[in-house]
Computed example of a mutant assay.
Amino acid sequence: MTKFLMWLALAALVIFAIRSKIRQAQKRYQDQFRQQQQAAAQPQPQPQPQPGYKARAAAQAANDAEVMLQCAHCGVFYPASETVQTNGRDYCSAAHAALPSA
């Protein structure tokens, strides 16, 4: 009978130890899950893009942009470097400048 009680006590200890380890693992998993949820809820700072080829090209295009004017005759917009001025008005071509004003 004492052997039976000894084996029963040993089995109880083993079961207790296994359940204890399972609880610890579950607690660790739940803590990690909570930390991940909290980290996901916080807004992440956006990394600043490094000025690469596209950024430099866009900056260069903005610097190279030319003022656009509107033709007094037809209303078309054209670059200021191509303007033909007559009587203080801007025209897109010499042909429109030569036409009588409406």
Score class of each variant (00 low, 15 high):
Gln38Phe: 06
Gln50Cys: 00
Ser101Glu: 09
Arg56Lys: 15
Gln30Lys: 11
Arg56Ala: 03
Ser20Gln: 09
Leu69Gly: 01
Lys21Leu: 13
Gln85Tyr: 10
Arg23Phe: 07
Ala11Thr: 14
Ala40Gly: 02
Gln32Pro: 02
Gln26Met: 12
Tyr91Leu: 00
Ala62Thr: 05
Ile15Lys: 07
Ile15Leu: 15
Thr83Ala: 15
Ser81Tyr: 05
Ala72Gly: 06
Gln38Arg: 10
Gly88Leu: 11
Trp7Ala: 11
Ala59Phe: 00
Ala41Phe: 03
Gly52Thr: 07
Ala59Thr: 01
Ala41Thr: 04
Ala61His: 05
Arg89Asn: 08
Ala57Met: 12
Tyr78Val: 01
Thr86Lys: 07
Pro51Ile: 01
Gln38Glu: 12
Glu66Asp: 01
Leu13Gln: 09
Ser101His: 08
Gly52Cys: 04
Ala9His: 04
Arg34Ile: 08
Val84Gln: 00
Ala94Leu: 04
Leu69Thr: 06
Ala9Met: 14
Lys54Trp: 13
Lys54Glu: 14
Met1Ala: 10
Gln24Lys: 15
Gln35Phe: 01
Phe33Leu: 15
Ala59Ser: 11
Ala72Phe: 05
Val76Leu: 10
Arg34Gln: 09
Ala25Lys: 08
Tyr78His: 10
Asp31Phe: 08
Gly52Met: 02
Tyr53Gly: 07
Gln35Val: 05
Phe4Lys: 10
Val84Cys: 02
Ile22Met: 12
Met68Glu: 09
Gln32Tyr: 11
Val14Gly: 03
Ala65Gly: 02
Lys27Phe: 07
Pro51Asp: 08
Gln60Phe: 02
Phe16Ser: 13
Lys21Val: 05
Ala102Pro: 15
Ser101Thr: 10
Pro47Leu: 00
Ala98Asn: 02
His96Arg: 05
Ile18Pro: 00
Cys74Lys: 05
Met1Gly: 12
Asn63Met: 11
Gly75Asp: 08
Gln26Ile: 09
Gln44Leu: 09
Ala95His: 07
Val14Trp: 07
Gln50Ala: 15
Gln46Arg: 14
Pro43Leu: 00
Lys27Ile: 13
Ala17Asp: 06
Lys21Ile: 10
Ala12Arg: 02
Gln36Glu: 13
Lys27Trp: 01
Leu13Met: 13
Val14Leu: 12
Ala12Cys: 14
Gly88Ser: 10
Tyr29Asn: 06
Leu8Asp: 04
Cys71Pro: 02
Val84Thr: 03
Val14Ala: 12
Ala98His: 01
Ile22Ala: 08
Gln32Phe: 09
Val84Met: 05
Ala61Cys: 05
Gln70Trp: 00
Gln32Glu: 15
Val67Gln: 11
Gln60Ala: 15
Gln24Ser: 15
Ala62Gln: 15
Gln37Asp: 06
Ala98Ile: 06
Ala9Asp: 07
Arg19Leu: 11
Gln60Ser: 13
Ala95Leu: 02
Ala97His: 03
